[in-house]
């Protein structure tokens, strides 16, 4: 009896849940700090779509950790588009056949409408005068970064340091691993995520330097005050790309391909690019980059593709079980 009521109520709930999808809507599944950007972008796109097609559209957002979101999409979360902060996450969807194999070619700029880079956040006045990566491996310097194995920020920080060491004269995988090993030895803890690393550094006053996205420096200023820290640009860092893709399987089922295509295309419009710049994400548009030059100091960067041959290679080499990160902790 209770079993019957049980299944009956579930069926009702399921119907109720699916009927709310009837009107024209689009679900954008994204990583966790992109909300500010899409909060500004979505109303703009709604206006644009209305002007173009005469229809109004409901835009739904889902934000959480990048890999978790992608797993959810693979497990059936009906995302029309995914907007992530790491290609390895979209690669996973491509592997599962939900996203086109050549999704990076479907949109300009490697399908990444804006970029960012990893920078150093240091204490006000930079008391330990930390200027570049080698300063971070010195004895007595404490480095705060999120867990390189379980967070996107941590992985970018790790690869940035690795790439720097590799590009030094005589640099090779061995020297890079030593360099990164020394850097990790200076980490008193691994934070559980980007935000947690920031709280540890800013509020709990632990560590001398926080490695973080350039775009997050602005969020930190919003929460903790602008004068509380300095941003240091190293001589060389990693270019972080934020790939977007249409989830083919879902848009075909829900007949929303046109809408999804336009939603992502519009990211490259002047309006979309400007919103990126306002959210401290480096726009691809050269003119806008110049216009906002004051907030985007020039920095030499390398991409994951150039130095590591793409995420498909970098990921297993460094972050899978038995990869370089694990090796560093085995030798201890």
């Amino acid at each position: 009896m209770s079993r019957l009521i049980h299944s009956l109520s579930f069926a009702l709930l399921a119907v109720a849940a699916s009927s709310s999808f009837a009107q024209s809507s689009l679900l954008n599944v994204s990583y966790d700090v992109s909300r500010d950007f899409y909060k500004d972008y979505n109303p703009l796109f709604q206006k644009h779509w209305k002007a173009k097609s005469g229809e109004s559209v409901e835009l739904k957002q889902s934000h959480a950790g990048s890999s978790k979101q992608v797993r959810a999409v693979a497990d059936g979360l009906e995302a029309d588009v995914v907007t992530m902060n790491q290609a390895s996450d979209v690669d996973f969807l491509a592997e599962k056949g939900l996203v086109a194999k050549d999704y990076t070619k479907k949109f300009p700029n490697n399908a990444s409408p804006y970029t960012s880079t990893m920078v150093f956040i240091v204490r006000k006045g930079n008391p330990k005068s930390l200027k570049d990566w080698p300063d971070l491996v010195k004895a007595g310097v404490q480095v705060i970064l999120p867990h390189p194995k379980s967070t996107g920020n941590g992985r970018y920080s790790y690869l940035a340091a690795w790439g720097y060491a590799l590009k030094q004269p005589g640099g090779n995988d061995k020297s890079a691993q030593d360099f990164v090993g020394k850097l990790l030895k200076n980490a008193p803890l691994f934070a559980s995520g980007g935000r947690d690393a920031t709280t540890t550094f800013m509020q709990r006053k632990i560590g001398d330097v926080l490695v973080s996205f350039e775009s997050e420096a602005e969020l930190i200023a919003k929460e903790f005050g602008k004068g509380e820290f300095d941003v240091v640009y190293p001589s060389l860092s990693i270019l972080t790309e934020f790939p977007v893709a249409i989830v083919d399987k879902v848009v075909d089922k829900r007949a929303t391909r046109k809408l999804a295509q336009e939603y992502l295309d519009y990211l490259w419009s002047k309006e979309g690019q400007e919103i990126a710049a306002q959210n401290y994400l480096r726009p691809r548009d050269a003119e806008l980059l110049k216009k906002y030059a004051a907030q985007f100091p020039a920095i030499k960067t390398f991409t994951v593709d150039e130095v590591f041959g793409g995420w498909a290679k970098a990921y297993p080499a460094h972050f899978k079980d038995g990869g370089s990160f694990d090796q560093i902790y085995q030798s201890k």
Partner: peptide, 24 residues
């Protein structure tokens, strides 16, 4: 894990807390 984090639809209060925190 099973929520999908869709704002205004499948976001519970604890999930909302985490998202807000991560958004500074």
């Amino acid at each position: 894990v099973v929520s999908g984090h869709i704002r205004g639809q499948t976001n519970t209060l604890p999930l909302h807390v985490e998202i807000l925190y991560n958004e500074y």
